[in-house]
Computed example of a mutant assay.
Amino acid sequence: MIYELNHVGGPVRDLEASLAFYGGLGAEVVDRLFMAGPRVNRVHIQLVTGLVELLHREEPDPEATYGLNHIGFMTDDLDGDYARLTALGYAEISSPRVAGSGQGRLAFLSDPNGVRVELLQRSEQFRVAPITTGPARAFAHIAIAAPDRDAAIDFYGTHLGMERVADDTFRLGADALKLVPAPATPIAHLALATADPGPAAGDPDGNQVQFVPA
């Protein structure tokens, strides 16, 4: 069973610049690991309740693209959930395998609008109690591309078991996804609820962070 919206993540060009940007929003590092095989630093930061996974290669790849590129869900039955979703016709990206970190197993598939979805089965828990020392009062949502809104509703609401808490918003665990009709990228933006919302900001890799009323 899929039981938690766990994180949003992707590769970053400059890890220290990304950490400085999100640290200015109140994020704290809750997990840091070096994966020796691919020579990648994996860092989880937490914004209030939301986990963001930053992946940084030691050796730059000139062909690489940077920015948030997937959303991750926790499951207690990786093989069963992956088989169920791919049998329904959702596109396979990578079948269940041991994670590069050595922490549990993972698989990737595509939602009906091309958003990369990671399924994770592991015992490690990186999320800590809500972090409220920064300006954000809540991790409002992760906005994802959903030009085919009905298909996205079926995928997230019916097949992933997320609770529909608004017309375009689904929750599973502490955090929420918001469906956006036609953004420029699959991960449209992150939204933080603050007491004094200001203009949106772009992180060092061009990911958008929006601020909404708390």
Rank of each mutant, 00 (worst) to 15 (best):
G23H: 10
L109A: 09
A20D: 14
I45Y: 09
Y156A: 08
F21Q: 09
V117K: 04
T133A: 13
L78M: 04
A182Q: 13
G89M: 03
M1V: 12
H189R: 07
A27E: 02
A17V: 03
L177W: 12
A146C: 06
V212Y: 07
F108A: 02
D61G: 08
G10S: 03
P213M: 04
R84C: 03
G10I: 06
D205A: 05
D76P: 10
I153H: 10
I93L: 15
V30L: 00
I131G: 08
E16G: 02
L179S: 04
E53G: 12
A152H: 06
F108S: 06
T86Y: 04
R84I: 04
T49K: 00
R122K: 11
D14I: 07
V8Q: 09
P112E: 06
V29D: 11
Q208G: 07
P112H: 00
P135V: 11
D148H: 04
M35Y: 10
R116D: 13
P11C: 06
E118H: 08
P183F: 04
A129L: 13
I144S: 01
T132N: 12
V40W: 01
P112S: 04
P199M: 09
T133W: 14
D81E: 15
D196P: 13
P112M: 11
R127Y: 05
Y3A: 03
G9W: 08
V165S: 03
T133I: 07
A182R: 13
V29Y: 09
Y22V: 03
A200V: 10
Y3V: 08
P204K: 13
A188T: 01
N69H: 15
L119T: 00
L54T: 05
V8Y: 01
Q46G: 07
G26N: 08
P96D: 03
N69W: 05
L85C: 09
N207Q: 10
D76R: 11
R97Q: 14
L109M: 08
G50Y: 01
L47H: 07
F139M: 04
Q121W: 06
V8S: 07
N41P: 04
H7Q: 15
I144Q: 09
I142Y: 06
E16P: 07
R42V: 15
A91C: 10
Q125L: 13
A201F: 12
V30W: 02
R105M: 02
D79Y: 13
D79H: 10
V12G: 05
V180E: 12
T169A: 06
D205F: 08
F34W: 15
A174G: 14
P60C: 04
A64H: 00
G104N: 02
F211V: 05
R122V: 11
A146H: 03
A140D: 12
L68E: 00
E118F: 12
M1G: 13
E163C: 07
G114H: 08
